[in-house]
């Protein structure tokens, strides 16, 4: 039993030098939280909305209750996303899985990394994204639930 039977979400890679503002806009428009990152056509990692928010938010402080809404600072940082690129926030240790990856292996990786997995072909090109929801839907269907 491999993941080939499960429907993948379509995914268009972004390159490492894509501006984060563009990636952010796309995530909002398409209502997605993760995008695969490719260099030279091959998968290298993942960019997620949390990493982008991490660039916008101030860092290094245990909490920011004292700072109020800081809307001016946050919007300024958001505008600065145009000057930052995917390579500044890409997570490179997110594994990709081949189309014939056994289902249990894929489940383990999904639970370990808590993000969709990029499904790649033999050439390393991204064919789609395997999400936890997609796997769950398949298993529910198989279980006749």
């Amino acid at each position: 039993m491999t993941i080939a039977s499960i429907a993948f979400s379509p995914a268009r890679c972004v390159s490492s030098d894509t501006p984060l503002s563009e990636v952010a806009q796309r995530m909002v428009t398409e209502r997605i939280n993760h995008l695969p990152v490719c260099e030279g056509g091959s998968y290298v990692g993942m960019v997620d909305v949390g990493s982008i928010l991490g660039v916008v938010a101030p860092t290094g402080l245990p909490d920011l209750k004292f700072a109020g809404d800081m809307l001016g600072v946050l919007t300024s940082h958001t505008r600065d996303l145009a000057r930052k690129q995917v390579k500044d926030v890409v997570t490179r240790d997110t594994p990709a899985v081949p189309e014939n990856c056994p289902l249990p292996e894929a489940l383990l990786l999904l639970s370990k990394h808590d993000c969709p997995l990029a499904v790649i072909d033999a050439a390393g090109q991204v064919k789609g994204m395997l999400s936890s929801r997609g796997v769950l839907a398949y298993l529910l269907q198989q279980a006749g639930a």
Partner: peptide
């Protein structure tokens, strides 16, 4: 102190 400094200087541009 450094993170607070960064926050304040950020807010003050």
């Amino acid at each position: 102190v450094a993170p607070v400094v960064l926050l304040i200087t950020d807010a003050l541009k």
